[in-house]
Each structure stands twice: as C-alpha cells, then as structure tokens.
Design a protein around this nucleic acid. Structure first.
Lengths: 217, 217
DNA sequence: TTCCGATTCAAACAGTTGTTTGAATGTGTA
DNA sequence: TACACATTCAAACAACTGTTTGAATCGGAA
C-alpha cells in the first residue's frame, strides 16, 4: 500500500496548513484535547483564521475528517485493485497487503496508526454525519467484497461483506492494544503478528463458505 | 455471563455514588466531555466532594476505571470457569458464552457496550497506568488461554494467547461499528452476528494449530 | 495610485472547568 | 454537653476555551 498522504512538504496555503495541523493533532490527542490555539500554532496562523477559513473548530474537524477518510479509502481501494489485477491472487496475498502496512506502522506511530486512532475516536464520539461516512465507505466495502468473491467464487456478496468487517476488526485491535501484544507475547515481531493475523482471517473467512462449518472436522 | 454490576440500587455512601455516576458518564461521554459538575449532579453530591473523597477528577477516574476493570475480568473469568467445568466443552460453546452477552447488549447500549467503550477510550488516551491494567488482565488472559488449551490440547500456551487477542478484536469492533453492520448487512440479527463471529473465531483459532495452515486445502 | 475585497491580527469576551477555601454542619465519643 | 474529627457547602479563583470584533495589512485590478 502506498503512502497515504499526498502531501510532500509544508503547504503554502493557510487552509491546507490548518487542515494538516488539525489532522495531526486530532489524531494524536482527540478533539477535546486539541485546542484551536494548538492548531494555529502548529500551522503558523493566527487564531482567528480558523473561524475565517472554516467558520470554527467544529467545521475544521468535519472537513479534516472527510479529507482523511477519502484518502484512506482511496489507498485501500488502490491496493485491492493492484492485488486483484495480478494473476491468480490468493486470499493471503490480499490480506497481507491490506494488513501489513498498518501493523508495521504501529511500531512507529506513523502514519496509519494515528489515522486508525482517529477513526476509532470518531466511532466513539460520532461527531461526523454517519450517513456521510457510510456513503464514502460503501465503495470500499463493495470493492473489497468483490475481491473476496473473485478469490473465493463460492461465497456470495453478503458473506463477503461479513468478511470485510472481520478483517477490519483484527487490524483495529492490534493498533489499539499493541502494548498488550508485547506484554503477553514477548519477542513477537510485527512480521509474526501480520502472519498470524492473515492466517486467522483467511481461515475465518473460509469458514463462511457454505457447508464448511468446521473445517477441522 | 451474569450481570456485570454487583450493585442493585442507589448506594447510600457518597463515595460509591460518585464512582457509579462517574462510571456511567465517563463510559458514555469520555473523560473530557464529563465535568465534575455533571458527576456530582448525578450523584447528588456537592462539587467539592470530588476533591474531598478522591482528591480530584483524575483520581476519581483512576479508581473508577480500576473498579470497572476488575469487575469485567471477574465476570469473564467466571464464565470461563463455568463453561470449562461442563463435560466436553467445545470451542464454540466457550466463544458463544463470551461473545453473546456483549453483542446482545449492543442493541440496548447497556451495560457491556458502555464498558467496552470505556476500555477503548482508555486504550486511545492511556490515562491509567498500563502496568496496572496488564497486571489485572494477566489472570484473565492466562485463564482463557488455558481454556483454549483444554479444548484444543494440540495448541501451546503462546498460540492460545494469540487466540485470546483475536477474540477480543472481534468483539470490540462490533460494538464500535454496529451501525455499519446494520447498514451493510441489513436484516442481520444480533443472533446471526454472534453465530458469524463464533464461526469466524473458531475457524481462525483452529488455523493456529500446527500443520493446519490452510484447512480448506 | 486608488479602491475594493480578501486575509490577518491583537484584544476582548462570555462561558466553562477543576480546584481551593473557610465556614457550616454532622457524627461519634468521652 | 463538649470536643474533635469528618463531611458538606457556597463562593471564589485562575486558567483555558472558542468565538467575535474592528483595525490593519495585503493583493489584485482598474
């Protein structure tokens, strides 16, 4: 999965600078622990500029979130496209490409980790219109579900959607509780974590295939 | 899994009332969006009592969190004990008993849901000493890992621990994103969600068994 | 150069927050 | 009943917050 940010250096446009600073700080500290003064200090702007450009902190957050969400989903979408255009993609290939960059980034708290945290914060607090979020997410979910169906032709769309959620759950948990992993599973490398997750998810997804309730028996 | 709260009615002790109110509000609104005035209003106490009894909002939070964590883990622990003392417990039995009450409660936002949200908020913000959390959690993780080993004698402790985390991830995601489930999988009942999760998790766990990398082949 | 709209600025503002303070009240014991 | 400690109370405080305001500055076009 490629770089999820399309920006390579500090923007000249104050508006973009504010959005970047806001994203950085909201991801890290959450909405309430990030003040307008924090944001404008990091962006090199005057405090009144938040109201001037965005009509306030709340709208800044909304716009920042939407921008980030769209970028996330685009990055995932492109990964799926890339894997599915190879010859005979496997379920493990696809899962690995989706999961690895995220888990790897957790070691450095950058950049996927902070983005996932933003998404989880938003899920907890629900500041953004859910219909907007779901509307954007729909394309991604549909695309990934189709990818699962391509690889496992025996599953239907509904089942593939279930699989999308399960994959999401696995990834999210590892980001939030990485320290717990380290404590309870000492010496486990991020590569091992990825391998384990891919294995778990692949097996779980295959269990959804009709007539394979318990594949070990 | 039995009731996770051991309190049946409003306590007379102001200290307990404050803890209860704090728990209710911190779970729902998070630390920053819950003011001392909110808590004391709900508890029927004077605002200075938070400082008197707990030496401030922060310590109130710490104590509330610890109390809640211990109760959670105890409830889970007892569920595991109950299942493992039956004749020939299956993996599906155990997973169902752990997962069902939580998913079911998500429909009503009470009580497991709010507790899970508290745990996720804490993971994001890390206000409580991680060593304390991990220390408490250790007994539960060990116990559940042993349960997995009892049921699947071919897996070792390390593998069983991995399984613990995967189960946790599944549950957590469903609580946070229940609306997404409803949107993308219309008509899916909570019973179906539970069944699907149990199936996914059981299959995933079995994939960890040595020599069973891809059970569909 | 002037004008007009865009943008930035510093200061002010009202509201909220957790904490503090000293007085008032409550409780238990001698 | 008196006393000492525990507990509660109302008011005050300092700090922080997002927003507003009118002035100052900037930039582009005529």
């Amino acid at each position: 999965m490629q770089n999820i940010d399309n920006k390579t250096e500090q923007s000249q446009d104050p508006r973009e600078r504010l959005l970047d600073a806001a994203e950085n700080l909201f991801c890290r500290y959450g909405y309430d622990r990030t003040s307008v003064r924090d944001i404008t200090a990091e962006a090199g702007c005057n405090i009144a500029s938040v109201n001037y450009h965005f009509n306030g902190k709340e709208q800044l957050y909304q716009e920042m979130f939407r921008r980030r969400l769209v970028r996330n989903l685009r990055a995932h979408f492109e990964t799926i496209e890339r894997i599915c255009s190879t010859a005979n993609p496997t379920l493990e290939d696809l899962l690995t490409e989706l999961i690895r960059p995220i888990v790897k980034s957790a070691e450095r708290q950058d950049p996927w980790t902070r983005v996932i945290r933003l998404m989880v914060r938003e899920a907890l607090n629900q500041r953004v219109d859910t219909d907007m979020v779901l509307g954007e997410k729909k394309f991604f979910v549909d695309r990934l579900a189709r990818a699962f169906m391509q690889i496992l032709p025996e599953i239907d769309e509904r089942t593939a959607r279930k699989a999308v959620f399960q994959v999401e759950s696995i990834v999210l948990h590892s980001i939030l509780f990485l320290e717990h992993y380290s404590f309870f599973l000492p010496e486990m490398t991020s590569d091992e974590i990825v391998t384990q997750m891919v294995r778990f998810a692949a097996s779980g997804i295959r269990s959804f295939v009709e007539g394979r309730n318990q594949c070990s028996e």
